[in-house]
Nucleic acid binder design. Sequence first.
DNA 1: GTCTCTTGATTGACCGATCAAGAAGGGGCT
DNA 2: AGCCCCTTCTTGATCGGTCAATCAAGAGAC
Lengths: 207, 207
Amino acid sequence: MEPTRERILFAALKLFSEKGYLSTSVADILREAGANSGSLYHFYPTKQDVLLAVLEMYRDGIYPMLLAPAWEGVDDPIERVFALLGAYREMLRATDCLYGCPIGSIALELHEPDPPVRELLSVNFDGWVTHVKGCLDQARHRLPPGTDTRALAVFVLTTMEGGVMQSRTHRTLDAFDASVAGLRSYITLLEAAADSRAGDQRQGTGT
Amino acid sequence: MEPTRERILFAALKLFSEKGYLSTSVADILREAGANSGSLYHFYPTKQDVLLAVLEMYRDGIYPMLLAPAWEGVDDPIERVFALLGAYREMLRATDCLYGCPIGSIALELHEPDPPVRELLSVNFDGWVTHVKGCLDQARHRLPPGTDTRALAVFVLTTMEGGVMQSRTHRTLDAFDASVAGLRSYITLLEAAADSRAGDQRQGTGT
DNA sequence: GTCTCTTGATTGACCGATCAAGAAGGGGCT
DNA sequence: AGCCCCTTCTTGATCGGTCAATCAAGAGAC
């Protein structure tokens, strides 16, 4: 059996993503982890410190747990962006549209989070966005010159979070699919615009 | 003084959007409304019934409270879409990025809401989307033929909700602005595509 | 022997919900 | 008019339950 500290951490991770932070009681975590309250409070002074540890785990897990599996066998940087969105789609599908992005859920659930919590939520979003920006930078030559790849990466996260929110509410993948289709259409148009402009330049007719 | 029932309802409306549903206690509502618990439970059997009444209020208020003010003096249907997003931006700005869309917050806060609650959240999203679809339908001739205006309207809601979520987390308007800019760029490209295709057709070179 | 970790009963605060008692108002009756 | 009754709403103490957090005592490892 894993050490108690990790059992508590994984139990909290699971429950926070399933039921949210506020709806998960310390007793729930203890039951799931098979531990006693004294042990939990030995490692973590308060429930919020458990949350902080979970958020640090998410932060450190973005690449190994999320991106690496989603990108296996996918080399094209633009396709990697959509493979990542596909991984979220699969999570929605596998859970009947119950669980989406735990960071987004916690971010909206805590209306005025303590600074350290807000900071870690922020860092989680930033890490995700930065990785997507990396893909877009790799594909920079296929996008219109001057494209703000960070802003575009933020828009990708927006698409995922907004789509997940609606799909969870409607208990249907439709809204998620419509959102990703919109993003796909947008990026395709951007690529076409970059391409035609490149053609213009080749022909010397660019503006 | 308004009747007690309405004072309770407005107090709940305010508190749910400020602190969320789970973090608002019945005692909070009573204090804000200046009422006693017996009165609240005389009108609403449970706290959840208060939530249902609040969600019905939001549903009925989408046009008169949100769209009508946002669209005042704006006639162009595409500009109306962005005027609506501008109204959300203003709400974020005026509250230092603390309050966003209360429906979205409640939707993510309740992971497995009772069916009537989930239904009303769904209906709220649907009403919003349908109104935006109305704008897009009015501008149908400016969009590529065959455009799925409902899917595009869902994508507009996705943009708003995803942008609000990130801006609230980062306490900066940047993410919201980047998301709306992405959507604006997308729709501009759609209009350009529709336009060039119309030109093609005029010239008889369309595919 | 000491440091790290575990046990589980216990605490006080707060939660949503209940309830008996009473105030307020408005017809209908004489 | 004056009175009564019945419905509607208000009061606020109170309930059992659950919450996060505490703590004294003990187990186990080195």
